[in-house]
């Protein structure tokens, strides 16, 4: 970003003449929420940051899911694995994110890697626990029927256990996604990426519309993501929502 010093304390007004809306307009007066600013900077600030935010979230949840899923499969077969993984993942959780990102900097630098590692760390526990609970929640009689019908272990996993664990897994994904969206905004404190960047920038420069509008955008993104996952969950697991018919 080009612009005034990061240490500026007054309202930031683009220094190329009068702001949109004129001297007494919303932007010049540092109003709480100026549509002018939103429409002016949608394409150069808000939209790119939104895309970055979605990318940060998708990468973190994607990698976190692969790790947690593999760990859950191991823990499903090897009981000893669960406590060790849980303790590790739970320990990460006790560190406030604002601090975790800072603690990672000496190791991974000021880049996207620091944010992603932090975000991935926070997704692990939820995804691991939910996947494992889903796998363990498959009723014993269903497993016995599968064994008795001659399904191999692998077939039992792919055709019976995983589909039945799907509601628990998607519930975990839902929490992981909204959590990651939230934490990714905090991550911008370290590396200016995603929707957290305009929020921190707005806070630094005391330009209200910037952090209010970006905050609102982050809120909308979280709600949209939440709704999309709920919808996907319903489509993926029709049996879990079928109502009992009169018999």
């Amino acid at each position: 970003m080009t612009g005034p010093s990061l240490l500026a304390t007054g309202p930031v007004i683009p220094n190329f003449g009068e702001p949109p809306g004129g001297k007494n307009g919303c932007i010049a007066q540092n109003g709480t929420f100026c549509w002018d600013w939103v429409s002016l900077h949608w394409s150069d600030i808000l939209q790119p940051r939104l895309v970055e935010h979605i990318q940060l979230t998708a990468i973190a949840v994607g990698i976190g899911f692969v790790i947690a899923f593999a760990a859950a499969l191991v823990a499903h077969r090897q009981r000893w694995f669960e406590p060790s993984f849980s303790v590790l993942a739970a320990f990460l959780y006790t560190i406030p994110s604002l601090a975790l990102f800072q603690l990672l900097v000496p190791f991974t630098g000021l880049g996207v890697l620091t944010i992603e590692i932090g975000l991935i760390g926070y997704t692990l526990l939820i995804l691991f626990r939910n996947t494992l609970e889903g796998l363990r929640g498959v009723p014993e009689d269903v497993l016995e029927a599968a064994r008795g019908m001659g399904l191999t272990r692998c077939q039992t996993l792919t055709r019976i256990e995983l589909p039945l664990a799907l509601p628990a897994i998607t519930a975990g994904l839902r929490i992981a996604v909204v959590t990651t969206i939230s934490l990714a905004t905090v991550g911008a404190y370290i590396t200016p990426l995603g929707l957290g960047q305009p929020i921190f920038y707005g806070l630094q420069t005391n330009f209200t519309t910037e952090f209010v509008a970006t905050g609102a955008l982050a809120v909308l993104l979280a709600i949209a993501a939440d709704l999309i996952i709920v919808l996907a969950q319903r489509l993926l697991t029709p049996w879990a929502h079928s109502r009992r018919l009169a018999t």
Partner: peptide
Amino acid sequence: DVIELRRGIGYVIQQIGLFPHM
């Protein structure tokens, strides 16, 4: 082979064990 054997035997249990997702 145990898998072959089981596929050739019908198996019904009290709890039925229907696959709820199918």
